[in-house]
């Protein structure tokens, strides 16, 4: 009963999808942009899991990263600034059978959409959320973002930005019902792929922050980290992600971390240098809002009819009190 019996029948008509089957159009991101790495990782995930393109919905807001859905040959919804999460929640609530992904940037998620972000964590709906964090507004041409480092000279802070950066990981880990938090850097594609894969398999709101370089506006920001492997900290655990031998050869700075430990996760999350990558936190026991609300429950016409009639009964004045149909309290 557990195995959908038609799987084998579907396989009869369908070869596995190569990567190109998930590709639509030519990305118009700048060359060298980290969004490309995420796109490749997500497409690999789709191929590896043999996900059916029509069952995927990519939802985004506004910003460079939010162009993401346009480059996937799946269903996509490129929405308005900051509102990707509530749109995605609506999609998931209406259609729990769809795999929902959200691509959002640091401005989209942490600034204009910050309220939705907090509540989305609380709803814990089953979706994979990728925060493409390049620490700057790109599409609107170089303004400071909530995650920009203090002192950043941008078009709105020509004398350097005034505030310390917001840390999306500690914020997420501080919200009730948080169930999955991971981080990767765009320059280690293997980790990007591994955390997105783990996020996809987690049932709940899977929050993945990708630290990205903006080749146009912040080309040098992550140079030290690119050149010094010691400045990246690989989190390892049997419940975490694995690293190839090749990667372990380069990145020797590793730390055991049990993703079930939220206190440790918060401690690690607050570390900015070295950058921790891998799974910081995972709790499979948090219920999903769409399950609590029994979304997708079959809804026969009879159910609606009888429900409506029962309600109408409550308010009905019958032509004659002796009428058989009159409600008797």
């Amino acid at each position: 009963m557990s195995a959908p019996m038609h799987d084998c029948l579907i396989r009869m008509v369908e070869d596995e999808h190569p990567l190109e089957d998930y590709q639509s159009g030519v990305p118009r991101w700048c060359s060298g942009c980290g969004d490309n790495a995420v796109l490749a990782a997500v497409q690999r995930l789709c191929r590896d899991e043999n996900l059916r393109p029509e069952k995927l919905a990519f939802v985004s807001g506004i910003g460079c990263a939010s162009r993401f859905p346009h480059y996937m040959r799946t269903y996509g919804f490129h929405g308005i600034h900051g509102r990707a999460l509530p749109i995605a929640e609506g999609v998931k609530m209406a259609r729990p059978d769809l795999h929902v992904f959200v691509n959002t940037g640091d401005g989209d998620c942490c600034s204009i959409g910050a309220a939705h972000w907090l509540h989305a964590i609380r709803y814990n709906m089953n979706m994979t959320v990728v925060l493409h964090d390049n620490h700057v507004y790109g599409l609107t041409k170089m303004q400071v973002s909530p995650t920009s480092p203090k002192g950043l000279r941008s078009n709105t802070t020509p004398h350097g930005s005034y505030l310390d950066a917001l840390n999306p990981l500690t914020v997420t880990l501080g919200v009730t019902n948080v169930s999955f938090v991971a981080q990767a850097v765009d320059w280690i594609p293997e980790v990007v792929h591994a955390v997105i894969q783990a996020a996809f398999h987690h049932k709940g709101f899977s929050f993945v922050r990708i630290i990205q370089r903006c080749p146009e506006f912040l080309p040098k920001m992550w140079e030290p980290w690119l050149h010094d492997p010691q400045k990246t900290l690989l989190l390892e655990h049997q419940d975490g992600i694995g690293y190839s031998a090749g990667l372990q050869k380069i990145y020797k700075n590793r730390q055991a971390h049990d993703p079930a430990d939220i206190h440790k996760a918060r401690e690690i999350a607050s570390c900015i240098d070295p950058i921790p990558v891998g799974i910081l936190y995972r709790d499979d026991s948090v219920p999903c809002y769409e399950d609590i609300r029994e979304a997708g429950k079959p809804r026969p016409i009879e159910m609606v009819r009888s429900g409506l009639e029962a309600e109408l009964d409550k308010f009905t004045v019958w032509p004659d009190a002796a009428d058989a149909g009159a409600p008797t309290p």
């Binding site: 594609p189 190839s244 031998a245």
Partner: peptide, 30 residues
């Protein structure tokens, strides 16, 4: 070591003098 190490091949040691790319580390940036 943690479970499921990804089977990524070591960067191939190219014959000296020939151009090569450490493909597993490529970020697909175009």
């Amino acid at each position: 070591t943690p479970a499921k190490p990804a089977p990524v091949p070591e960067p191939p040691a190219a014959p000296s003098g020939e151009a090569y790319i450490e493909t597993p580390r490529c970020t697909s940036c175009n």
